[in-house]
Simulated assay, not measured.
Amino acid sequence: MADLDPDAVLWSADAADRAGRPLLVLLHGYGADERDLFGLVPYLPPAFAVAAVRAPLTPPFPAPGHSWYPIEGLQNRDPRHVTDAASALIAWLDATAPGVDVGLLGFSQGAAVALQAMRLQPERFAFAVTLSGYVTPGELPGDTALAERRPPVFWGRGTRDDVIPAFLVEHTVAWLPEHAELSGRVYPGLTHSVSEGELDDVRVFLEKQLEAKTAED
């Protein structure tokens, strides 16, 4: 399991300003890095402290950036690679933000890792935003507890997304409603990307999570 680089994290606030605030962790997609989703910060509710982390692997040349798990070759479709990436994320959180309320926002590979992390530690994460992603097939020991807890999950995807295989979309369509309080939208004409309309929906979802936390407190 490759560790996350603590020096390759972009924060929306310094340590003093993060105290007492819920944490939103951004998980980029294949071939990108921590800067990719950090550009979303102005569109997100300012109540969150935001951390954009860098995936630990480097794709084979000539692919740029970083990846959470390998996708080259059939042998690299092993779901254990996604679990390893989610475990690395959890280890980084254990060292960086113990006891902090954490939500996850991932794109593509990052979305798959976000959902896998929730499955590994169902009580650890308040919610997840998954954009152009999927649930990794297979069973994990935490799935039953996750289905009982049913944390809020937003899943956004486009009708013209030809990157995520159809069988993974079909699996996610069946799996998520059984394990989460699912909300989201299918965006007509959207490719493997994020649109302004989707960002508007994400912001509404995040604001609802803040309202729910305030009500609990």
Rank of each mutant, 00 (worst) to 15 (best):
L93E: 11
W68C: 01
V25I: 13
V163K: 13
V169I: 15
P6M: 11
D33L: 09
R77S: 14
Y134V: 00
S195Y: 05
H179P: 04
R35A: 15
L168D: 07
T83S: 15
V113P: 04
A88I: 05
L206M: 11
L168W: 08
A91S: 11
L190I: 00
A114D: 05
G189L: 08
P22G: 08
A86G: 02
V194H: 07
F61D: 14
W11Y: 14
T130A: 15
A126M: 02
F154G: 01
V173F: 12
D84Y: 13
R185A: 09
A180I: 05
I71T: 14
R157Y: 15
V100M: 03
G20D: 10
G39H: 06
D17I: 00
L26N: 05
Q121N: 03
D17R: 14
G39D: 11
P45E: 10
E123A: 15
S193L: 03
E34F: 01
G29V: 09
N76C: 00
L57E: 11
G158M: 11
E207N: 04
L37S: 07
Q121F: 00
F205G: 02
F107Y: 10
D5R: 10
S193Y: 08
E181G: 12
Y187T: 06
L206H: 05
G110W: 09
A63P: 00
V100H: 10
V129Q: 02
R80G: 15
E196V: 12
Y69N: 07
P177Y: 06
L37D: 02
H179M: 05
D84I: 03
F125R: 01
A86C: 03
A126C: 04
Q75D: 15
A8D: 13
K208M: 14
L4S: 00
T58L: 15
V135W: 11
A86R: 01
P165D: 03
L131A: 03
P141Q: 10
L74C: 03
A13E: 10
L105Y: 11
E148Y: 03
A47I: 00
A111S: 13
P62K: 13
A15Y: 05
A47E: 14
R150A: 06
P98Y: 08
E72R: 13
L40G: 02
P79E: 09
H179S: 09
T136W: 09
G20F: 06
Q109H: 07
R160Q: 15
S12V: 03
V186P: 00
D33Y: 07
A147N: 07
V25Y: 12
L37H: 08
M118P: 10
I90K: 08
V194R: 01
V41W: 06
P137T: 02
A97I: 01
G189H: 08
T191F: 12
L27T: 02
F38W: 06
A145N: 06
P70D: 10
W175K: 02
V194F: 04
A111E: 05
F38T: 02
T172H: 09
F154H: 04
G158W: 04
V194E: 06
A13N: 02
L10V: 07
P151Y: 01
A88E: 06
L146C: 03
G73A: 10
V41Q: 08
A49H: 03
V102L: 00
V173N: 14
W68L: 01
L115P: 04
H28K: 04
T214D: 12
G65R: 08
D14T: 10
S87K: 09
D201A: 12
E139L: 12
R77G: 09
P79L: 06
E181W: 09
S108K: 08
A128Q: 05
F205R: 04
T96C: 06
